[in-house]
Design a binder for these strands. Structure first.
Lengths: 204, 204, 204, 204
DNA sequence: TCCTAACCGAGACGGTACGTCGCGTCTTAGG
DNA sequence: CCTAAGACGCGACGTACCGTCTCGGTTAGGA
């Protein structure tokens, strides 16, 4: 078949990429990341722990940050945002935010997120990648929740969805990054309630 | 006078710290910071531009981040949050947030804030210093605004002030750091209105 | 061949050491050494002149002194002590000492030798290396000259060879290091004659 | 009296130099010198141990080496070469060299001498000072011993005194600096005997 | 069954910045 | 005028990572 033939032709000639090496590198990066934070780990350390060559790492990941992105993304891939349609905006937001808030505060992800956000500021290419992997999916999910609320008539049709998303996620990120107070279930409830209250009352 | 005499005796023995050198270092740090971001500047570069010795820098600032903190704090010291009692929560919050949002988005402070927040994650001492200098003052100011609103009966007396502060500042930090949308006056108005709406409506 | 195969297997795994870099470093060290002396040259200067990295230098030479030792040894390797059997102790010693005395006084080696001898005092490992490279070979050569003289019956069989070697080399080193008088051919002749006279007359 | 008046005028106006400070500095320098060697001590360390200011040290000693010279000279001042006329060259040389050889090998003076000789190579002014303090006196003393031997007819009147002095002292310095063999009484005896034999036998 | 391309590890390479140390000078207060 | 304390500009230290590069060796498909 043509397609299969094409694929077969696209299969590179020489030795194929080592899957075990790829996994070892991502695993080593994840471990070091959560242990020491991004800034204090080095490519040398990742290579040594993964028993891999630095050249191999650089062949597949252009920078430490993109490697990091892959590493935590592959960890979070399991934590897929599930479909949850409870029938009310409050219920949907709770269903969406509670597991997420628990997940990001359960492990020292704050240092990883903070480091990646620092990289975003100075590297637009990385910024795009960061958004596509870590930001857009969750915002899209929350956006559908808001869209359903509009359909149900709970909130105004002309609601500024982007501002609403920032109102929802902003407080969580702030506590995560500044660490001035606990990111617990109580806070999640309060914040979700605030957001619902802000959107269901027509803006004066 | 006795007090003056005491102070004179407390004056340390050796050569006093050079004020001109201190200013030159902070100035050089500020300039390089806004030009290139924290991660890509070096102590060597700061020392060279300030015509100072690296040893002098390290004598007074244990780390690049604490130097940065001092540098931008001395810049923002002029930007003191003014007293603003407009008579309504909406008015007060606008008066508080509009100049601040304009200021932090006018210059490339995002990369600086992001880098400092990254450092906060891994260095508790620095975290305390960061809070005392950059976080606490602004939150305290906003807290008095909320307190006045409680006095006026605009919002409930049992309002969770901390959560309210996060609801207010979170969205701004999120746009600042993620850069996914403009941090303009329109956004400030929308967010302030959201916060007021969230707090004036009793939580269900 | 088996042996060759073994050698081929012993070839270390990674990128082999750069021979051109090694030579450039030794050459730069030699030049700077004779220009400015050991104490006033820096590893930075050597690295810059050799267009090499400081890390590369430290990878192969633990200290400035061992680098120096290698550098002047590779210069002196050409100045190999030739075989000279003239038939008499006086003739042999002249043949041995005249070229050497001329060589060490022709260039500013005194500052190098002095600096290395200073290092010898505080670093036993370096002392061993210094002896093996710069001291032992010449003393061994002179020792054979004395041995031949014993065989010929010119000097007593129970001559204290070590003391004789010190009697021979000591005066040269003293003038070289203290610089109180010229280290010229006349001095070489006088000293050699003194040594011969001291050894050929039976000690009372 | 005029002279006294002149002296009184030459007496500087202000606070006189502190003798206790001078002694403390020399003492600290001596201790550190023999403990660690010249190259690994610092002016800061001397100042700290002597509880003196660095400025005070630099006011009176232009360099570390000249301070060192003063320090060991003040130690050796007690070890004055005594007058010793035994009636024979051998006896005089033994009387001269035995105490000296014992003294310089009893403590770790080798590292001090070696460091000073290294400085001599690169600093002519220091070289002159070094000779005047440590070299000339001893050579002058030995020269008078040789002069007496000439008067007594033990050695030739046209003996090259400078070469003879180098023949005498060279072996001792060589063993002291190279440390390849013990600088014991036996070696002193052997060397003195060699020197006497070399000088009493007419050069061919 | 070879050939050859692309992979892999190990590790040396030229750089840049690090944080520290010592130098010799200076600026204070005080004896 | 001297002394102590100690900050200063300067330059070198030895180390850690960076991203690149050369090796020998491995693993596949294509000839």
């Amino acid at each position: 078949m043509a397609t299969q033939g094409t694929i077969e032709h696209l299969r590179r000639r020489g030795r194929p990429r080592s899957e075990s090496s790829r996994r070892a590198i991502l695993r080593a990066a994840s471990e070091l990341l959560l242990e020491h934070g991004l800034s204090s780990i080095s490519m040398d350390a990742v290579a040594e722990r993964a028993r891999a060559s630095k050249a191999t790492i650089y062949r597949w990941w252009p920078s430490k940050e993109l490697l990091t992105l892959d590493a935590i993304f592959s960890e979070w891939a399991t934590l897929a945002p599930e479909r949850c349609d409870t029938g009310s905006l409050t219920g949907d937001l709770h269903a969406l935010m509670l597991p997420w808030a628990r997940a990001i505060s359960a492990r020292p992800y704050a240092r990883v997120i903070a480091a990646l956000l620092a990289k975003v500021q100075s590297d637009p290419d990385f910024g795009r990648e960061y958004h596509a992997r870590l930001v857009r999916p969750r915002r899209a999910h929350a956006a559908t929740v808001f869209a359903m609320a509009i359909e149900r008539g709970e909130i105004a049709p002309d609601t500024d969805i982007e501002a609403a998303l920032d109102l929802l996620y902003g407080p969580f990120y702030l506590r995560l990054l500044q660490g001035h107070a606990a990111l617990d279930d109580r806070f999640t409830h309060t914040t979700v309630d605030h957001v619902v209250a802000a959107l269901t009352r027509p803006l004066t």
